[in-house]
Every structure is written in structure tokens, then in C-alpha cells.
């Protein structure tokens, strides 16, 4: 049984119109989401020995860049296997997003091994 001790609802706590990759590209970026919400909540969940549930539902949709910057970005700060093991996703609006995000986390591992910029 997964012990979820932190929870983020992107639409309610961040924005229902998620934007681009980085802050210099526009509002509500993946980078901003990572810094303001995802990273602090992830660190709390790790410190508490539980998992972080990320609720992707309720937004207008997501660009790939937003998701990659947020979740790939997290996996470039922490070991990707640890990130994959400690995040739980809810996505009833777009169920395929879960595989997509997990792919970004896995790709971050490959990029790190290939020496790509963090």
C-alpha cells in the first residue's frame, strides 16, 4: 500500500492553464511549477518517508515542455529511479499523460548518463 503524505493539485494550486518550459518563455511554466510546488512537496514527502501524489486533472491541458521541465527537471535534481518510485500520478482527464511523464523521468536518467546539462 502506497503511503501518500503529500498531494499537489496542479489546476487548483498552480494554474488551470499550464504554460511553457521556462519562466522566460511565458507564464505558468514547468520551471516555475517545479520551483514553487513540486520540489518543496517532493522534499517533504521524501523526508516523511512517503509518496507524493500529483493530480494532473482539471487543467486545460499540458504542453510536453511543461511536463518535461517539471518532472524531468525533478529527475535531474534527484536520482530518477527515486523520483519514479516516490511519485504517484492521477490523470483521469488524459490517462496517457502518466506514461508520458514517466517517460520524461526515465529520459532524464539517460540524459544524465550522457552528460546533458542539468
Amino acid at each position: 500500500m502506497e503511503k501518500i503524505i503529500q498531494r499537489i493539485e496542479i489546476a487548483r494550486q498552480f494554474s488551470d492553464t499550464p504554460g511553457p518550459r521556462s519562466k522566460d518563455e511565458g507564464e505558468f511554466s514547468g520551471e516555475e511549477f517545479l520551483e514553487k510546488l513540486l520540489l518543496p512537496a517532493y522534499e517533504k514527502s521524501i523526508a516523511g518517508g512517503g509518496k507524493l501524489l500529483v493530480d494532473l486533472d482539471g487543467t486545460e491541458g499540458y504542453a510536453t515542455s511543461f511536463l518535461e521541465a517539471a518532472f524531468g527537471g525533478l529527475a535531474r535534481k534527484f536520482p530518477p529511479s527515486e523520483v519514479a518510485a516516490n511519485l504517484v500520478f492521477k490523470s483521469e482527464d488524459e490517462p496517457y499523460l502518466i506514461d508520458e511523464v514517466q517517460g520524461y523521468i526515465a529520459d532524464a536518467r539517460k540524459a544524465a548518463m550522457a552528460g546533458a546539462p542539468r
Binding site: G19, P20, R21, E25, G26, T59, E60, G61, Y62, A63, T64, S65, F66, D93, E94
Partner: peptide
Amino acid sequence: MKCTPAYRVLIECMLNTHN
């Protein structure tokens, strides 16, 4: 109403132009 695929395409297009 929202349409998540159309939203994705629009944001990706804006990003391509911007970058």
C-alpha cells in the same frame, strides 16, 4: 469547454515561434 489536445498544439506552436 476545454479541449486538451488543441491546447497542447497551440502551446507547442507558440513555443516553437518563441524559441
